[in-house]
Amino acid sequence: MSGPNTEYDPVQVTPLGEAEVARMREDALTAIAQATDLAALKQARADHTGDRSPLALANREIGALPPQARQETGQRVGQARGAVSQALAQRQQVLEAEHEERSLVADTVDVTLPWDRQAPGARHPITTTSERLMDVFVAMGWEIAEGPVVEAEWLNFDALNLGADHPARTMQDTFWTEPAENAVVLRTHTSPVQARTMLTRTPPIYVVCPGRVFRTDPFDATHSPMFHQIEGLVVDEGISMAHLRGSLDHMLAALFGEGIRTRFRPSYFPFTEPSAEMDMVCFVCRGEEPAVETCRTCRGEGWIELGGCGVVNPRVLTACGIDSERYSGFAFGFGIDRMAMFRHDAADLRDMFEGDVRFSSAFGSEV
């Protein structure tokens, strides 16, 4: 059995000698001191503390030394590396401060200089889309109706045939104000405006109700806890689903151009019976092959979902004091934000609410 190596040739470990380690340390400190900017300091850091730097290579050689030489050599190399690290940190602080000072001087704006122009603002795409929609219905003889965003529970739910155990009333769907016994919510749709209209007017009623609504949705590319809706209500004698279909087809043609086909899919809403989900054919690919397969707007479906609609439930008419035996009506509700995204091919709903004028400017100054 071989014994420990107690003899070694000092010539073979000359790179780990006191003079050589001191030279490596001084070279590193000199390079750090001569760094005049952060880029030069970064290069000095890589040259003198990186894996292939002289001190790093010297540190690897310590393990090959005999036991009696390792402690002294390890302390020597460790002290040198510590001094280099400390010098780097101090020089980093100095250069960062100088860089910040230079940036403040270079970026300073002389607010006393004369100016002859003002950057133009921009109308928000949700605003222009909402106004265009309202113009369509006003041209048809309808009226604009508005109401408060903080609404009574009865108007937001009960008057619209949403029972006490309806899941929309839970904290997971609705923002309730405090104290809870006041039964006041942030409206979850603009339908309370329809209820207020029926309570204060006598038929015939033709109103469209735009506005902000609130639900406890996540804030992501397609959802927001605050968004915008436009709802319509007609109450008159002899109103049917045919009148609903014709009104919505006219609205979509005005917004997306002629030739937009639509379809109804059976659905359920407490305040309408019968109820339907309305889709329109994709206004980009028109649902035709082969364009539909690669269409980003409809994602290959050929159809785009818009929102819910239907014939007003007689219970809603009765709750609002209207004779359901004599009058009938229809109602619909669509998301303005969603329609603006379709109209302008916007991919992320969050861009609509960040308030950046550069985003709004891209959509022009439509009036």
Rank of each mutant, 00 (worst) to 15 (best):
G50Y: 05
G50S: 05
D51I: 13
R52D: 10
R52I: 07
R52A: 12
S53L: 08
S53G: 09
P54L: 10
L55P: 07
L55Y: 02
A56Y: 01
A56V: 10
L57N: 14
L57M: 11
A58Y: 09
A58G: 05
A58K: 06
A58W: 11
R60W: 11
I62Q: 05
I62S: 04
G63T: 04
A64D: 11
A64I: 02
P66W: 13
P66V: 03
P67Q: 10
P67N: 11
A69G: 13
R70F: 13
R70N: 07
Q71G: 15
E72R: 15
E72L: 14
T73Y: 11
G74S: 11
G74W: 04
Q75S: 14
Q75C: 13
V77G: 01
V77L: 05
V77C: 01
G78W: 01
A80V: 03
R81Y: 04
R81Q: 15
G82W: 03
A83V: 09
S85D: 14
Q86N: 13
Q86A: 09
L88H: 02
Q90A: 11
R91D: 14
Q92T: 13
Q92W: 01
Q93E: 14
Q93H: 13
Q93T: 08
L95R: 06
L95M: 04
E96Y: 06
E98Q: 11
E100N: 12
E100K: 01
R102S: 02
S103I: 06
L104W: 13
L104Y: 12
A106V: 02
T108L: 03
T108M: 00
V109D: 15
D110T: 03
V111P: 00
T112H: 02
L113I: 02
W115Y: 14
D116P: 08
R117H: 10
A119I: 12
A119L: 13
P120V: 08
P120E: 01
G121S: 03
A122N: 01
R123H: 03
R123K: 05
R123T: 09
P125K: 02
P125C: 00
T127W: 00
S130T: 12
E131R: 06
E131N: 04
M134L: 12
D135Q: 04
F137V: 03
V138C: 06
A139Y: 04
G141S: 09
W142K: 09
I144M: 10
A145E: 00
A145Q: 02
P148C: 12
V150A: 12
E151G: 07
E151I: 04
A152C: 13
E153C: 09
W154P: 06
W154F: 14
L155I: 07
F157G: 07
F157I: 03
A159H: 04
N161P: 07
L162S: 04
G163H: 08
A164C: 14
D165T: 13
H166F: 01
H166T: 11
P167H: 00
P167F: 09
A168N: 11
A168C: 11
A168E: 14
T170R: 01
T170Y: 06
T170P: 05
Q172F: 11
D173Y: 10
D173I: 00
D173H: 00
T177S: 11
P179D: 11
P179W: 01
A180Y: 15
E181T: 08
E181K: 13
V185H: 05
V185D: 10
L186E: 09
R187K: 15
T190F: 03
S191N: 07
P192S: 09
P192L: 09
